[in-house]
Design a protein around this nucleic acid. Structure first.
Lengths: 132, 132
DNA sequence: GTAAGTACGCACAAAAAGGTAAGTATGAAA
DNA sequence: TTTCATACTTACCTTTTTGTGCGTACTTAC
């Protein structure tokens, strides 16, 4: 099966698939996409891949704390959304390379800006935490 | 109690609180902040508040699908992180106004850029979904 | 001979997130 | 007089997410 594991993504009419999404409405599929992109590991994967192609185990080592299961799953979400490109070489010790598609590079950049902002402004945020 | 409900935020030494965060490392507090900001309702709250001050029930109506519980909880996270300002008027039917702090406006803008990108590019993404 | 590395899938379990319903105080509208 | 609206909190339960450990097929290094 090559379809998504999510049974909620029934075939939508073309007219709907042409429209801009609306995150404020309940049923909008953009919420699913947002979920994948902003998921715990999705953010880190996108940022990591902005730095270039990585193998599965490279990502696993770079992103401290991910389990193999979650890394695989999140990569599959991002692949299904068209953000990540997976290239598998049928060699004996498995060899798979992950990279961003053009679409993935675009979201990745937005995500990275957010991630960078948080990293850079952590001190200001922690100061707020302490004051609360 | 005015501290966070999260027992994991023990008092950190000042020297640590001055440093830039690193999302790739496991224990970095920036991951907590990221979690709040990119949480299911956090994104929507920040974007909504970029449009101006809102009352609790205004937010509830604008963000289709949030429960009161999650709205309250997410607002508390964002308040503790210094992104949201809560102003309560001690009148009989409760009246509370939420707005963004300067810090909140900064993250909010990053988040909005991501949200906008997703909404605008939904058609391209759904096309990828269909092709998978 | 045996352990390690690779890129996962699967079953089971724990943890976290989320939803629902009810309660609160009080004034105003129906 | 019953109902509604406000801004939550709390208890309880369900759903979702995440982690853990094991298995795989084969090669290389020890």
């Amino acid at each position: 099966m090559s379809t998504t594991d999510d049974p909620g993504l029934a075939p939508l009419p073309l007219s709907v698939r042409m429209q801009r999404g609306d995150l404020f409405s309940d049923q909008c599929p953009s919420r699913e996409v947002l979920k994948h992109v902003t998921s715990r590991w999705g953010v880190l994967i996108l940022v990591a891949l902005l730095g270039g192609t990585h193998r599965f185990s490279d990502l696993r080592r770079k992103i401290a704390g991910v389990s193999e299961k979650m890394l695989a799953q999140t990569l599959q979400w991002l692949e299904a959304d068209g953000f990540v490109d997976r290239k598998a070489y049928p060699v004996v010790p498995p060899h798979v390379e992950y990279s961003l598609t053009p679409l993935g590079r675009e979201v990745g950049e937005k995500v990275e800006m957010l991630a960078d902002w948080i990293e850079f402004n952590l001190p200001r945020i922690l100061a707020a935490d302490a004051a609360s």
